[in-house]
Simulated assay, not measured.
Amino acid sequence: MRRVRRVFTEDLYEGDEAVPRDPARAPFVGLLLDGCLREDATSPDGERLFALTFPGETLSPLGPRRCRGRLSAIGAVRLLTCDRDGFERIAQAVPRLRLNLLGLVQEQLAEAHRWQVLLGRKNASERVASMLHWFHARQGAPAELHLPVNRTELGQMAGLTMETVSRQVRAFEKAGVIDLPLPSRVRVIDPGALQTLSGDARTQRLH
């Protein structure tokens, strides 16, 4: 890690700030330490797309991604970045670094695929609970999580309408599972109940 720290640069970003600040100096690889990153892009047929990155996840490579969309910070963000030359130097000193990076990217792809499969087997209530539980877990299970998407976008991720998402969130709040001090903040009052509502325990038993 000391070798990595000599080559990687730690950058701090504030809410809605573009990452990187200078597009001409986009790093080759990045590792998110704290906060949340959001990438917005438009598909060839005009559909608006977005992706989220949470602590412990990697961005590699950042250069081509920046050509297709805008990467920005959601709240305070701490990011380790490295250019291509620096990564080549550290990879020669630590040969397993390439494999570790590849493994991390593969894990993220596998997790995304797993989520698509699981969500397809769940009803509306379980889907919304799953998304909230996922955000809660990816942020380190805080007492109050930051919801990095609005209701429409949450519905897009879960395959539901905005009205259905809002109705389910209100039901969870009425049941005392969560509280909503702000539209973008969710206080998880009963994490165990939220996981039960997600249907994950039932899905695991089926396997």
Rank of each mutant, 00 (worst) to 15 (best):
S130A: 14
L97A: 14
Q204I: 05
V29K: 07
M131S: 07
I178G: 03
S72I: 11
P95M: 05
T58G: 07
P55C: 06
P44E: 01
R66W: 06
A129S: 01
D11T: 08
F172C: 03
V19N: 02
H133E: 08
P20F: 01
N100W: 06
P23D: 05
E107A: 14
F172K: 02
R96I: 14
R170M: 12
P181E: 01
M162Q: 15
T196F: 09
G140I: 00
H146R: 13
A175F: 05
G86I: 00
L99Q: 12
V4E: 15
E153G: 10
T161L: 09
R187G: 01
D40F: 09
R185V: 04
L180W: 13
I178T: 04
A143K: 14
L119E: 09
E57C: 00
E111K: 07
L147D: 02
R167H: 12
S60P: 04
N100T: 11
C36Y: 04
I189W: 01
D11M: 09
R185M: 04
G56T: 02
D45S: 12
R151C: 06
D200C: 08
V4I: 15
M157V: 11
P27N: 01
R167G: 00
A201T: 06
A112I: 07
V94A: 11
G199P: 00
L101P: 05
H136M: 03
G86R: 01
R65V: 07
W134A: 15
N123A: 11
G46A: 00
E17G: 03
P20S: 08
N123T: 02
H113F: 13
Q116C: 08
Q195L: 15
G69H: 07
L97P: 06
V186P: 02
Q108C: 05
C36S: 08
A41V: 03
R205F: 09
L197T: 06
E47W: 14
M162E: 15
L52R: 12
D45L: 04
A112D: 07
S125F: 10
I74Y: 09
G75D: 04
P44T: 01
G103H: 07
N123Y: 01
H136E: 02
T9P: 02
L62C: 06
L194P: 00
I90D: 14
E107P: 03
Q168A: 09
G199V: 03
R121K: 15
D190Y: 07
M162T: 14
A112L: 10
Y13E: 01
V7Q: 02
F28D: 00
P44M: 06
A76Y: 07
A26D: 03
D190S: 09
I189D: 00
V169Q: 07
T161A: 11
I90Q: 13
M162N: 12
R6S: 14
A18W: 10
T9N: 03
L206T: 13
R151W: 10
L12Q: 13
L33F: 05
R3F: 15
R96P: 11
V117P: 04
G86C: 08
L37E: 04
L104Y: 05
P191T: 05
Q204Y: 11
P64S: 05
G192V: 09
L31Q: 11
R89Y: 06
L104N: 12
G69K: 10
S72N: 05
R70F: 01
R78W: 08
P148I: 06
L31W: 14
R96E: 13
E88T: 08
V165T: 08
D16T: 10
R187L: 12
L62N: 03
S60D: 15
T9Q: 02
A51Q: 14
S43K: 07
